[in-house]
Nucleic acid binder design. Structure first.
Lengths: 373, 373
DNA sequence: TCCAGTTCGGGAACCGGTTGCCACAAGTGT
DNA sequence: ACACTTGTGGCAACCGGTTCCCGAACTGGA
């Protein structure tokens, strides 16, 4: 069965096919398509017709190898399913295409091996920049590995961008864009403390995860700023998923752990926690207060609407590609720190039966002393 | 200026650089790296050392052009920010890398022009398959355009996959994977009707969007199966966002529109609607019942947990790449239809002050007569 | 010692484009 | 009629790899 009068199936046409059909040389076809070189109208017409008839599109890889391709940019995240990073992916993607770049997205599911592999692939693809987002275990091995990657990317004319990850040793060719986990958590926890809460359950992330660590540091610092030390039993590690939040609250409740407020490291975690609280017959915020982190769109649809910390993820994504792509080769390494702010909704109340010490507590995102640079 | 001194920034090394450093020819380096050809141990060692010292990685584009590259696969969606498609992206991504493919993700923000442009780019990249997901306006022009794309993709040995989009004319080389919008909506709406609801507000999508249309058809069919015709004022068009759901409910309420249940075309819309209902002092499900569609993870954290239709998005994504990549060139066109099912939670109650006609109403995902093929 | 068989490695063509350089034709001024 | 532009398009080198083909060196057996 003939599929189509011209062109066997699976046989893409090359520039030489077009040239032959138009009765010119490949150079001429290339020049017509590029549009920069003087070509007579008659020739141009013939070439264009051949292009149309063959449905020809120049091979992007071949162009790239010849040095005239569309530059590419890679974006690596843990899990594209999480709303916050999805927003960031969106920002990255939009800005990349605005700047005429192709954008490759890869989610690693938290698998370091996979991450490494993908970065190597991107280096092979000669990506203009590789953007890594999300916390990781900040081990010595991690730093060594990242430094190596940064170096080899740089020596290939590319650029490593770390988003929401700890910076590497100064001098390493890397762009770092952080959002302030510690200050946000500090402000949020201070808000809780100002409402009289003293036993605040902290639903953290994986112990080694830097994002989780930053938020936990804020939680701790806010307590210590008031001269208090939180019960270490109140800090529960886990995943950044709703199920994890749900599970941890159920366990805490069944173990008889006492707390008047819950501070979840993530809105997703908070969502699961909220449901577990409800299921236990507790009402928020009357019985227990609850706060999250990230300010995903959904946060305001929880019942009650969730008090949380707003992180400008989409802007973060845009910024990442802008600074990575817009830099001059010998510019100093950028290190940006984006501010966050608490958005107060209805999931926090004063602890029952206790006077609120400071009813007009200021809510801000000031870093505690010794904050990040 | 000399071309390179192996340490200059921005000068990636080529296979010839490695060859020179190892004192062999480029062919040998290629063979060592490929690992398929017999090479003496001494030579291999020297080559590997040179590779390491130069931190060399073969250019993937050059390999691709020579016919030994990593195949690529493209995934195009409306908005990566929406939870359901994000899950699908996840499925696509996982399956693609499992099958050794690179995966390009692009979100078009609903811009047809952008979509077209991206598909063309993918054709230039010689992507093995292009997966389009999400509803669109099903116009004659759309079909013509898609058919053309399908043809030119096919003639280049690639494959167009439509996910959750209407099929094209038979004979067009395209793989279609649909999930059953109509049946799901039918079952969901039947569930509502069985609870005695007669005025069900339908929060749809953009009028031309096929996903929205499918769900609306289910809504209509369920009514008609009981010999009823829903008030057309109860069908409100809009976006698939929480804000749109919120806005529409607020307006409906302020206009004094009467309804005992809300059927949102999307869980996101339902979330916004729920909040608007709450804000108006209405409680769900006592005052008004509410259902969504998609079963995003968040749905069970709404208050009350949302009754909705489960769509296996991640599975859908995996399936899409599996069938697209696993097909033999001359196989007939696949057209899969994935089933959905209602998941009953607590957001639906019998209409107040009315006897429930059929308390043991079966909840299933049977298609209405004349359903999809 | 000579020859066949292996093992190993280089030269060159090729993948599908781009582009510098040059040749040829037509047009122009004197 | 001649030299000089100017417009046009082809040849060939190049981008960075892979691989076919062939020859050199080394091996072992007779």
């Amino acid at each position: 069965m003939t599929r189509k009068s011209h062109g066997d199936i699976g046989n893409r046409s090359t520039i030489r096919d077009v040239a032959a059909r138009a009765g010119v040389s490949a150079s001429t076809v290339s020049r017509v398509l590029a549009g920069d070189y003087p070509v007579s109208t008659a020739t141009r017409t013939r070439v264009m017709r051949a292009v149309r008839e063959l449905d020809y599109v120049a091979d992007a890889r071949a162009k790239a190898i010849a040095g005239v391709g569309t530059p590419t940019l890679a974006f690596v995240l843990d899990d594209i399913t999480g709303p916050s990073f999805a927003h960031m992916a969106h920002g990255v993607e939009r800005e990349a295409t605005r700047l005429g770049h192709l954008c490759l997205v890869c989610s690693t599911d938290g698998d370091t091996e996979h991450e490494l592999e993908f970065i190597e692939t991107m280096r092979a693809q000669r990506a203009a920049a590789v953007i890594l987002v999300g916390g990781t275990a900040d081990t010595a091995e991690y730093r060594a590995r990242m430094s190596r990657i940064a170096d080899s990317l740089a020596s290939a004319g590319s650029r490593l961008v770390l988003c929401g990850r700890p910076p590497l040793d100064p001098g390493t060719p890397v762009t770092v864009i952080e959002y302030d986990n510690e200050s946000g958590a500090y402000a949020l926890c201070a808000h809780l403390l100002a409402q009289g809460h003293r036993r605040i359950l902290f639903l953290g992330g994986k112990p080694a995860n830097t994002t989780a660590q930053g938020r936990e540091r804020g939680y701790l610092a806010a307590h210590r700023a008031r001269g208090e030390e939180p019960d270490s039993q109140l800090r529960l590690a886990g995943d950044f998923t709703r199920d994890s939040g749900h599970r941890r609250i159920r366990q805490a409740l069944s173990q008889g752990l006492e707390f008047t407020a819950v501070m979840a490291a993530t809105d997703m975690v908070a969502a699961g926690a909220l449901t577990a609280l409800h299921e236990a017959g507790l009402t928020v915020p009357d019985d227990v207060s609850l706060v999250g982190y990230d300010d995903i769109p959904f946060a305001r649809d929880l019942h009650p609407p969730l008090t949380t910390v707003h992180v400008p993820y989409e802007e973060l994504g845009r910024l990442a590609v802008r600074t990575a792509l817009g830099r001059t080769p010998d510019a100093p390494n950028e290190h940006l720190l984006l501010g966050t702010h608490v958005v107060v909704r209805d999931s926090v109340a004063a602890v029952p039966g206790q006077l609120v010490p400071d009813a007009s507590a200021r809510v801000s995102s000031q870093a505690p002393a010794g904050g990040l640079t």
